[in-house]
Nucleic acid binder design. Structure first.
Lengths: 345, 345
DNA sequence: TTGAAAGCGCTAACAG
DNA sequence: CTGTTAGCGCTTTCAA
């Protein structure tokens, strides 16, 4: 490496081979426990590896074989829902040689492209993309280049596996809960979406669709009221401000994500309104904070942990067998009723 | 790559050279804008790069030069304070060739070692370690192997730069605030620490020290009351339960971190106590959620964003000049008074 | 200013 | 079962 004195040269496979009195091929084979090594050879090599403290260079490996590196692209470290997914992913990786690296802060097509390219440039063995906004053609190309699992995008592509929550059904569950409590003016805050493709594939769009559909089937079509902001706390805050300014404000606000619901609660607190006395609030995701007593948010659990374990299982499968047909997993959400929803006044 | 058909072979430097009618050496030089290239050559090469959509293989580069990859090790994605640091780091990287990858979930010496080794194996050009718990010798070795900046550890090592909040002073500020409100029985919840080295270097230990020192200097030595749990929401919850069970409970709880304070609020809500009416609560970090109105947590701002920008500046410096003496930056914290603290009953 | 050639550490044919 | 050998894609002396 350019920055270190020659004296601390890294131990290489050649050093190990010399120390063990065998060929580098032998060392390589033992390391990858490939076919054709005697147990005697294995023990000699392993001993040399331990004595010398040898560690294979992922860079050199990358030129021929795999890097044992997996990449996760997440849109936003601040959304704690993604931590649940990561937990699930990491769990399955314990005890394997794989190392997971993640990137954050991809909010647009350009930065997403930069990140996916960066991961491919670094010869990662597999990618997990969470709620990507890229165009299908780009995702398809990524999937053709490297084994890829896409989470949070209802895509019908064939080049990669997908894992999704049934967002349409989940939104329906929440509307049913609120309507069951007697609410009629149930408003929804969604993440603004204009791109026609994403309008059909992104979870936020499907939740809005599910809301619309459920309102109609509960005979509340005339009360459909959707505010488009963003899936952030700020988005929730501003969305709530807009809804409170309506001539006849809603009696319940169904936010498309828990972080959005937090922003709603922020605005309601500021306005001096009580929850659920004056107005009911619900979210989506069931982040850990939703169970936090001072908040106790009613929400929809999409099982982030299970999404993570499913995704990593699919990814490892696909690395083993890149040719197998794309899987399309859709997991069922469950409503979680806590303290922010109640009957209307 | 083993998983893709030969037909989609990656464009290499050889392809670019052939297409531009020059040598691979020339291409390499232009790419790294090294010394000794005519402007004519530069434009020809750049044109070929664009036409072919060439992207250098980081893996191949790693064997000779740099990878343009930086690694950030964070202990816990769930602690939103780290997001502030990451924002600061990412900001300075915009427009550079560097790509940042992070790992999470290193809670012990073993997994930290695994992660740092993994980053070194992958020939990363620089590392930022956040609140590492490893032994100094290990950190020193990492720092000698690759340019490293350590955040959140008051170490006096010479092999890497450090960026820290003045945790001792920060804790003093909070005690002063609470004492100024008239509190005497001010308890503290800390992250359990037994290792003698970490007891001198970790922020949590210094905050506890600062608390102790400040209590004494305010003449409240007899009321010093420290509960050792962990810097998580759970830790705060259990710490508060312990404190509430005291024969004479404290009138104020100073949690060593905001996430801990959230756990405290959780426990107080459960116990039916009002904040700050019955008891005052404060945290440390000033995470975004602290400003969330329904919580409005009094805390200490350690300026995560500035910590991040400082760290990345130092890291890029050190990559450029690995020989320069280690910097030791300590940033001043500021108290942020919100709604969870008030005069005692 | 340019290019030929060696080699970074590893894996994978292919002989032995 | 074992070792020799030829690269992977790039950077870097060193001549021209």
């Amino acid at each position: 490496m350019h920055h270190q004195p020659a004296t601390v040269r890294r131990v290489t496979i050649v050093d190990v081979a010399r120390h063990a009195g065998v060929s580098t091929t032998a060392v390589s084979k033992v390391l990858r426990n490939a076919y054709g090594t005697s147990s005697q050879m294995r023990s000699r090599v392993n001993a040399a590896v331990d004595e010398l403290g040898y560690r294979p260079s992922a860079a050199a490996r990358a030129l021929r074989g795999r890097t044992w590196t997996l990449g996760v692209m997440l849109p936003d470290v601040r959304n704690p829902f993604f931590a649940d997914i990561l937990d699930g992913v990491a769990e399955h990786l314990d005890g394997t040689e794989y190392q997971l690296f993640m990137t954050s802060g991809c909010d647009d097509v350009t930065s997403e492209a930069r990140v996916t390219e960066a991961m491919i440039d670094r010869s990662m063995d597999g990618l997990i993309l969470i709620a990507p906004v890229s165009r299908p053609a780009h995702l398809e190309r990524v999937g053709r280049t490297v084994p890829t699992v896409v989470i949070g995008r209802h895509s019908r592509s064939t080049g990669f596996d997908t894992v999704n929550d049934d967002d349409f059904a989940g939104a329906g569950l929440m509307v049913a809960h609120l309507a069951g409590l007697g609410h009629r003016r149930i408003a929804h805050i969604e993440h603004r979406e204009t791109d026609p493709v994403r309008l059909a594939e992104m979870p936020n769009a499907l939740r809005a669709d599910g809301y619309r559909h459920a309102m109609l089937s509960h005979g509340l079509g005339e009360h459909i009221d959707i505010v488009s902001t963003g899936y952030t706390r700020d988005g929730g805050y501003h969305g709530a401000r807009i809804l409170l300014d309506r001539p006849v404000p809603p009696t319940a606000i169904f936010a498309g994500a828990d972080v959005v619901a937090l922003g709603v609660l922020d605005a309601l607190t500021e306005a001096g309104l009580s929850v659920p006395g004056d107005i009911s609030v619900s979210g989506y995701d069931d982040i850990t904070l939703a169970g936090f007593r001072p908040i106790s948010l009613t929400t929809v659990d999409q099982g982030g942990h299970r999404i993570g374990t499913t995704a990593i299982r699919l990814l490892l499968d696909r690395i083993t067998d890149p040719g197998r047909p794309a899987a399309r997993v859709k997991l069922a959400p469950t409503p979680v009723v806590r303290a922010t929803t109640g009957p209307p006044r």
